[in-house]
C-alpha cells in the first residue's frame, strides 16, 4: 500500500538531550528509512523505548470496569471477547455484522510503536499491533456523503461492574472526522507486544489515534457507524467544557483543571521529571488536517 505510514520520529522528538546522546542511533535509523527498509523493526527506527508490558496492562482507564487505574486489570478478566462481531452501518456500501475472526485475516496487521498521551497529563510508549482503519473503511465501502465515523464500546453490565453506576452515559461513544479516520496513523489495534489485546486494554479491538488524547482511543468496539453529522462522544457529553470533540494533544490549550504543557512519563519511578508535551503528541504530519481551524476553539 502506497500510503502506509512511516515513522520519522526519533528519540530526539522526546527529549532534546537524547538526540545528542543517541545521534548515531538516529542516523542509523534515518539511513534505514532512506533505503526504504520499512520492513526493518520500527523499534530501531523510532528510538522510542516502549513501556513494559506490565506497565501498559496494569495502569488503565477503562471506566466500564471501575474508575481506579488498577480496576480494569482486576475486573476485566470476565469479559467475553470471543465470538466478537462489529456492526458496521450508516453510510456504507456493505453494512452488516462483521465477525472479527473473519475480518482480521483480510487486514494487514503490523507493529506500530506510538507515544500515548492521556488527557490526565501522563504518557507512555506502546507497541501496538493492528491495522489501519482506512483499510477496513475501504473494505466496507464508504458512501460519498459520509463525513464522520462514530464508534461504540460494548455495553454488557453483567460483565462490566463499572457500568452499574452512571459515571458516564453508557455505552461509551467516540468519533472521528472521516479524514482523521482515514489517516494512515489511525489504527484498529488487536494486540500489544505481539500478544492478543488484554481485556483491560480494550480487547479484542480498539481504536488508536496517537495525536489525540487517550480517551479518544475507544475500546472493545462493537459498532462503527458512518454518518454525515458529528457524532456524540462520551466525555464531551459528560463535560463539554473539559473535553472537546477533537481533543488533539495540544500543550497550548490547558484542561480547565490542569495544565497540558507538560506530562509525566509513566514508568520513570518516584522522581521522574516532567517532559514538555508536543503539539499533536509529536505527530506533526497530521497538522494539515487542521490547517483552517482555530484549535483553541476546536479543542
Amino acid at each position: 500500500m502506497a500510503n502506509r505510514w512511516r515513522n520519522t520520529l526519533t528519540t530526539a522528538d522526546v527529549t532534546p538531550e537524547a538526540m545528542f546522546l543517541n545521534r548515531r542511533q538516529v542516523m542509523a535509523g534515518a539511513a534505514a528509512m532512506g533505503l526504504g527498509l520499512t520492513a526493518a523493526p520500527l523499534r530501531a527506527a523510532t528510538g522510542l523505548e516502549p513501556n513494559s508490558y506490565e506497565d501498559i496492562t496494569s495502569y488503565n482507564n477503562y471506566y466500564e470496569f471501575g474508575t481506579g487505574k488498577e480496576d480494569p486489570a482486576r475486573n476485566a478478566g470476565q469479559l467475553t471477547t470471543d465470538p466478537w462481531t462489529i456492526k458496521i452501518d450508516g453510510l456504507v456500501e456493505k453494512p452488516g455484522d462483521y465477525v472479527l475472526s473473519d475480518l482480521i485475516p483480510q487486514m494487514t496487521t503490523e507493529e506500530r510503536i506510538y507515544r500515548f498521551r492521556c488527557v490526565e497529563a501522563w504518557s507512555m510508549v506502546v507497541p501496538w499491533n493492528g491495522f489501519e482503519l482506512a483499510d477496513l473503511l475501504d473494505l466496507v465501502g464508504v458512501k460519498p456523503e459520509a463525513q464522520y465515523v462514530a464508534f461504540e464500546t460494548l455495553y454488557r453490565p453483567e460483565e462490566m461492574p463499572g457500568t452499574r453506576f452512571p459515571v458516564l452515559d453508557w455505552p461509551y461513544r467516540e468519533g472521528l472526522r472521516l479524514d482523521e479516520a482515514r489517516h494512515p496513523l489511525t489504527l484498529l489495534a488487536t494486540g500489544i507486544y505481539g500478544k492478543p489485546m488484554p481485556n483491560q486494554n480494550g480487547a479484542p479491538i480498539r481504536l488508536v489515534v496517537p495525536w489525540k488524547y487517550g480517551f479518544k482511543y475507544i475500546k472493545s468496539i462493537t459498532r462503527i457507524t458512518l454518518t454525515d453529522k458529528q457524532p456524540k462522544t462520551s466525555w464531551n457529553m459528560a463535560n463539554a467544557r473539559e473535553y472537546g470533540f477533537y481533543s488533539n494533544v495540544n500543550p497550548q490549550v490547558d484542561h480547565p483543571r490542569w495544565s497540558q504543557a507538560t506530562e509525566r512519563r509513566i514508568g520513570g519511578g518516584l522522581f521522574a521529571r516532567r517532559e514538555p508535551t508536543l503539539m499533536f503528541n509529536g505527530y506533526d504530519e497530521v497538522a494539515s488536517l487542521y490547517e483552517a481551524m482555530d484549535l483553541r476553539k476546536n479543542f
Binding site: 513501556n51 506490565e54 496494569s58 495502569y59 487505574k69 488498577e70 501522563w122 509513566i266 514508568g267 518516584l270
Partner: peptide, 15 residues
C-alpha cells in the same frame, strides 16, 4: 513502597 517501585506504574499518583 514508592522507593521500591512497588506502587504500580505511577507511584506519584498512588501516593
Amino acid at each position: 513502597q514508592g522507593f521500591q517501585n512497588a506502587l504500580g506504574p505511577d507511584p506519584v499518583d498512588a501516593i
